[in-house]
Amino acid sequence: MILHLVEWAMSSFIKSRSQDKLQIFAKETLGTSKKDHVPFAVVMAAAGVLRALNRSAPSRQGLQILSSIRISAENRIESVAQCFISKSRDFENSGGDYATSLLLQCISLALARSGSVSSRPALLLSLASALLTEIFPLRRLYARILESTHGSSGGLEPGKIKEHLSSVTFREAGAISSVFCNQYISVDDENKMIVENMIWRFCQELYSGHRKVAFLLHGKADELLEDVEKIAESAFLMVVVFALAVTKQKLNSKFSTESQMETSVLILVSFSCLEYIRRMRLSEYMDTIRGVVVSAQENETACISFVESMPTYGDLTNPQEFQQKVDYIWFKDEVQTARILFYLRVIPTCIERFTWIRF
């Protein structure tokens, strides 16, 4: 509501070419933050300004003013995002309280709906946090489902997952993921690395959590499992699009062979973790796989590293995380089976160029 109201007002001032009113409105909307200003409202107001600017065709006379307003609007969103980052000790797992949750959702929606926005590290990190904790809150859901399964009173409330599936932020997941990737492309290497590590860890945790939940719920709570997997499938799409952006940035001559090797292996391992969730043949997925496999093929160390990342026989047949909670039967573990099949498909392609390998 705030976003569209501000957009309407800004658009009216731009069309009327009333520069005085435009400057006054922008100053009141984007001026120095006060103690009584609510962060999420500030973000949505700034997004409304940006949306109006991106949809207007300014005259040459007002171009300088509008350019200045654009910078101010982007600065306001960045300042709120930076404040969140500086206050949060662990913004990778920050979706705890309601205020933080609402702020992250507003930042992600604001950036998705406002149009073109300059890349800034604080925006990238906030989007990463929003995606991993609010839009795809799988780690939190897995924990609550497991608590419910084992009789804890702090488990998942009925209908919470369906409520999330119908939420605005989840429906906008594709647009938010796109903005996230665009922000990633233009930031510095240090922040690129931070976000990459966040995504790869998320894949590992998704595999671990979904493996337990799928094993426990299959045949007992299939509807609940299907709803969880809808979120997981959407998360998979985000990871694929992000991984493709990473390959375009990292798998080139600007980076060392060692760096390219490490990136390729991390992407392959991450994709192996998500193989069970892959339900469609995406061109972005195939392009990413081709790119990282070609990179791995050219490096013996990369191939060895990828092979060694495969779970051991002991992990496959007698996993520690299942021992004390369920009667684990390894061949019924479909999530793990899908991951191993991924390795069996990719490994021959990776090692086919190395004639020294004999079985």
Rank of each mutant, 00 (worst) to 15 (best):
S11T: 13
S12R: 09
S12F: 04
F13P: 01
S16F: 09
Q23C: 12
F25N: 03
A26G: 01
L30T: 07
G31E: 07
K34Y: 10
V42D: 07
V43F: 08
V43K: 03
A45F: 07
A47F: 02
A47E: 00
P58V: 10
R60D: 12
R60G: 15
S67A: 11
I85S: 04
S86T: 11
K87L: 15
E92N: 06
G95S: 08
T100W: 06
L102A: 10
L104K: 09
C106H: 06
I107M: 14
L109I: 13
A112L: 06
R113M: 09
G115D: 02
S116Q: 14
V117Y: 01
L125E: 06
L125A: 04
L132I: 02
E134F: 08
F136Y: 14
R139T: 06
R140E: 09
T149Q: 09
S153W: 14
E157S: 07
K162A: 05
E163A: 11
S166W: 02
T169A: 11
T169V: 11
A175K: 07
I176E: 01
D189Y: 12
D189W: 10
K192M: 03
V195E: 00
M198W: 00
M198Q: 03
R201T: 14
F202E: 01
S208T: 12
G209D: 02
K212Y: 02
A214S: 15
A214F: 08
L217S: 05
E223A: 14
S234G: 09
V239Y: 02
V239S: 12
V240E: 03
V241S: 15
L244M: 12
K248N: 12
L251Q: 00
S256P: 03
S270G: 09
F271C: 05
C273V: 00
I277G: 00
R278T: 00
R278S: 13
Y285V: 07
T288A: 15
R290Q: 12
A296S: 15
N299Y: 00
C303V: 09
C303M: 15
T312Y: 04
Y313H: 08
G314M: 06
F322N: 07
Q324M: 11
W330A: 15
W330Q: 13
C350T: 04
R353A: 08
R353T: 04
R353Y: 04
F354T: 02
R358Q: 02
